[in-house]
Amino acid sequence: MSDRNAHDYLPLRPVEFQILLSLSAGPRHGYRIIQDAEERGEEAAVPGLATLYRALRRLEAEGLIEQSDTASEQDERRRPYRLSGLGVEVARLEARRLASQLGSEAGAALLDPEASR
């Protein structure tokens, strides 16, 4: 997988970007990632646990995230995930891609329909 360029992973699925976004703030276990999504106000797009864990396994297998060896403090059954170097890179590229989409004229209009009238 190391022979793959970070660009090859783009575009990410929404749930994958949500994971990378959460983990960029620090290591977390599964349910915290969901809570993050809820806090960001993504009610409609909060992933279910099964969806989340399938994505986590995929990202881990591709080397974008890693599971830490130490158990979480609150619950010894769970080990938190964190971003790998490649993961950080992919997350940045995806964030930039999305931002540039929204930075375009049409994107700005979508975000603020009033101003563009």
């Binding site: 599964g30 864990y53 396994r57 059954r77 769970r78």
Partner: peptide
């Protein structure tokens, strides 16, 4: 792989 974590989250 993820059973324990997933059920704990649930």
């Amino acid at each position: 792989a993820v059973g324990q974590s997933l059920l704990a989250d649930f």
